[in-house]
Amino acid sequence: MTVMCMNEIVVSDNLTKRFGKITAVDHISFEVYEGEIFGFLGPNGAGKTTTINMLITLLRPDEGTASVCGHDILKEPNKVRERIGVVFQDRTVDGYLSGWDNLKVHGLVYGINNDALENKIRELLKFVELEEWANVLVKYYSGGMTRRLEIARALLNEPEVLFLDEPTLGLDPQARLHIWEYLLDLKRKKKMTIFLTTHYMDEADRLCDRIAIIDHGKIIAMGSPQELKSMISGEIIYVRTNTPMDALLLKQHLEKQGYSAKMLDRDGVVFVNVKRASAEMPVILELAQRAGVKVAEVRYSTPTLDDVFIHLTGRSLRDERIGSFERIREMMRRWRAR
């Protein structure tokens, strides 16, 4: 591994959590090193939130334990709480308080004294560019602004590790970029250690020094984005056909010709892993024609983390159906919280 500073800030040792018959988190072990951004990448229901909840001392593991900043989450939960900042997946601001008051209450609860607190709040509101909104009730904030406020709040107690659970879930692309900038800024300027979860592969790729890919409560791969992507050599050609049937037909033809091809069960896309896409693309198109498969779209790229996930599980991270469902749920939640 190519990690320079080897101070472990978070150490998870066989963390396990069951809900009835479901094992939401299944003997997960990993380390997060000082100053890095470490990401949990996995689809909905993989166990990301459950893991974070155990690390931040909200949920008691059934087996295993973890330590954060050298303190055991079970034996010294308050020591852990003092040293971390948390941005939850769901919004946890008080809509009927102003942005300023949300931070003020948080600061007082964390034991920061009043004078220091005012300066700190001003500084952080500036950092997340919400100074002008300081006195507006948070229920009038957009989703992106709320998230920024939550990040500012999590930084108030000068945490040693920042935990973020799906920091850009349900945000529009511009708001996401904004959040990414803040997080990268924190890492660069404050050497902040960040643990985040996401089901967006581009987010993990862009932000994380190291990623653990998690599925069904287990870590199925871990490494830097480069290391993970190099699990797949060459390039990936995506061939979109009109029906899943066509896709299956094409996949089988390709395999007969010795290609490494994969498909997902729902949307008629075939993924072909080749050495050089530009050279192979015409060959594949010709093959499709011979097989009588109508091709709707072709493109290629170097492997993405999604390809890695497909390679490992046969499923895609990018499940649009769940994605839009999540989005609606998020909208409902925001609407109700007004």
């Binding site: 909200l58 308050n78 919004r91 946890t92 034991g111």
Partner: peptide, 18 residues
């Protein structure tokens, strides 16, 4: 229901005081 509770629980504040 609206999540603020978690924000209070994850704080290192004495439960009694809160």
């Amino acid at each position: 229901e609206f999540g603020y509770f978690k924000e209070i629980l994850v704080a290192p504040a004495p439960r009694a005081a809160s």
